[in-house]
Every structure is written in C-alpha cells, then in structure tokens.
C-alpha cells in the first residue's frame, strides 16, 4: 500500500479503564506526528470500550477507530490481530505503535507478520530522521543500545513502559470516532483461556510507588524481605526484587523489577544486596535517585547510585530503619 499517513497507536484497556501506557504511547505518537505533519490515530478494541474514545482524544489522538466486539472482551492474539489488521486497512498508517506490555509483547510480532513488516520491540526512544522512524532499543540485557529503521511499511515499534511522559489530558481537544465492524470469526480463535490468577497486592503498587526498596540474592531468606517491607511501609513505598530473589521464592514473581519484570519509576530506589546486573537496571531507567547497600565495593549497582554504603545489609538496614522511624516521628 502506498501513501501511508498517520501514526496509529494501539490503545490498551485494563479492567474497563484506559491503561496508563496508552497515554504514554500517544504522547510519543503526537510528537512524531507533529514533526511529520501527519495525524494520530488510535485503535480501541474490546467490549463496551467506546466511551473511552474521548479519553484517547484528550490524550492526543485525532481519530479513534473503535472495534466493540464480544470476541475482544479478553485479549487473545487470534482475535486481536485480524481486528487491528482491518483498522490498518482503513487507516493506512505509516507508523504503528503500542506498549511493551503483556499484550504488546504478544500482539506486535503477529501483527507485524500480517502486515508484512517488522517491529522493533521495547524501544526507549523514537525519533524522525529524513522522514523515517529511528527506533532505539536496549539489547544485550541493557549493555548496548541498537538503532533500527524499518525497510518496509508500516514502520512498527513497541514502547517501553514509563519511557515516555504522557501529555496532560486536554478535554477540549476535538477528534473523530469511527466504528469498525471486525467480523471476527470465533472459530479462528484457536486458544482458549481457561483460568486467570491475579496476584493481589496490598498497599501501593510497584508501578505507582514513589519509594521502592529492592532486595536481591544477598538478602538470603524470605524473612529478610519482611525487614524490607517494614522499611517500605514506613516510607509509604513498596518492595521489589531481583529475578534471583524471585527465583529463590523469597518474593512473589509479579514483584520482579527488570527487563523481564516490571518497569518502575520511583523518586527513590533503595537497592539492598543487589549486584546491579544490567537486566535488573533495565527496569529502573526511570528511577530518579538510586541508593545502594552492598558489601562489595566493586558491585555494578554503585555505577548507578547517588549514595552508597559498602557493608552488610544486616548491619546497615536495621539502624537505617530506626533512624527513618525517628525522623518520620519528628
């Protein structure tokens, strides 16, 4: 298809509301589209999702394609891929963007295949050069960055969570809402979801926490994480962990921070007994201040730190906790 125009954002809905990643991706799309002189389109898929279209317009979209279909009530790639393919047929975008989320990770490569194009996954930075989309993504566990362009159209990327600042919603923005009938054939959906178990978390979600205390393999036990929870509670924060600590069963898997876990952006991250492997730090690119306690002065974590203490956490964290409690009481 020639004369592609517009940047299409695949929006995400979670539990009836727009997922925060949607506004982040729309903000990136808006910036790129303004530079190209093209419109921003959004694809909104699900059941009963039409009322969310205005929110997408307020977040930067000019035109929203809505597919409201019972077959889209839950994410299944076999249903979502043909629906978005249909929207792409109508919108004919030059660029397709979505979040590097549970859905984006699964959907993007399959959609790209259908559109006979390539996707750059987990991009941190998107720019325009000579009219083409330049996509920068970390690779080798965060040790290197790769810059790609796509040889085919549409150019496609998934965007790392928290890597883009959303625009302040503007309720006065005007846009068009177009309904698209997907005509999804239920028999084409080859997978069946038979169960889902959400790991409920009490208190503040990692993604929203302003203070996060992270624990690593050097914590040594499940019990040690209780000390970190006590500390986090005191600072109205949350506890996260490295993959090593989650693999040991010391902390729940949904609390893993990093390349294959959560991406977080706290104002303060306190890394306790964490070596600072690039794959862990990949989840902390948005952290504003990092502090570490590690007994090894050579640990990589200190390369990312504002403050550091070289020492055994067992000797440092309890008096730290007491002092924080005392300061908070003042």
């Amino acid at each position: 298809m020639a004369n592609e125009s517009g940047i299409l954002v695949v929006a995400e809905v979670a539990e009836g509301a727009l997922a925060s990643i949607s506004a982040e991706v729309l903000a990136a799309a808006r910036r790129l589209a303004d530079e190209l002189g093209q419109p921003v389109q959004a694809a909104l898929l699900g059941q009963g999702v039409e009322p969310l279209a205005q929110e997408l317009i307020a977040a930067g979209a000019d035109k929203v394609y809505v597919v409201d279909d019972a077959a889209l009530a839950e994410y299944q790639s076999d249903a979502f891929v043909p629906a978005i393919e249909k929207i792409c047929g109508e919108a004919n975008p030059s660029v397709v963007l979505m979040g590097q989320t549970d859905i984006g990770r699964d959907l993007a490569p399959r959609l790209a295949f259908r559109l006979e194009t390539a996707v750059a996954m987990d991009c941190m930075d998107l720019a325009i050069s000579d009219g083409r989309l330049v996509m920068t993504r970390p690779c080798y566990g965060g040790n290197a960055n790769a810059q790609h362009t796509c040889k085919t159209m549409p150019q496609m990327a998934t965007v790392r969570i928290k890597s883009q600042e959303p625009l302040a919603p503007d309720a006065s923005r005007q846009g068009e809402v177009v309904k698209v009938a997907a005509g999804i054939d239920p028999s084409a959906v080859r997978t069946k979801i038979t169960g889902r178990r959400k790991e409920e978390t009490e208190g503040i979600r990692l993604e929203d926490a302003e203070v996060i205390v992270g624990g690593g393999r050097g914590m040594g036990s499940v019990e040690a994480f209780q000390t970190l929870e006590e500390l986090a509670d005191l600072m109205k924060g949350a506890v996260g962990a490295t993959r090593a600590a989650c693999d040991m069963g010391w902390y729940p898997i949904p609390k893993q921070i990093g390349l294959t876990g959560k991406v977080v952006s706290p104002a303060l991250y306190i890394a306790v007994a964490i070596s600072g492997a690039s794959q862990h730090m990949a989840g902390l690119s948005g952290a504003k201040n990092i502090v570490a306690v590690n007994k090894d002065p050579e640990a990589s974590i200190f390369r990312y730190c504002r403050y550091g203490i070289v020492g055994d956490w067992k000797a440092v964290i309890p008096p730290f906790l007491n002092k924080v409690r005392q300061l908070k009481a003042q």
């Binding site: 960055n145 790769a146 040889k151 085919t152 990092i290 550091g308 203490i309 020492g311 440092v316 309890p318």
Partner: peptide, 30 residues
C-alpha cells in the same frame, strides 16, 4: 531482513556515587 541495524553502541551511565563513610555501619546508616 526487514529491520536494518543502523547503529550499535554502549550507553554511558554517568551517575557519581557518593559513598557514605563512617566508623560503624550504624553511623553510616543514620
């Protein structure tokens, strides 16, 4: 291939860590 690799480089982390030195771990913690 459909994706072209135009550049590969090692990003720099320029954070300068201020190590907190003290006589005892308690003091450093405080």
């Amino acid at each position: 291939s459909l994706l072209s690799l135009d550049r590969l480089y090692v990003p720099v982390h320029e954070a300068k860590c201020e190590f907190i030195e003290a006589e005892t771990p308690e003091e450093a913690a405080e």
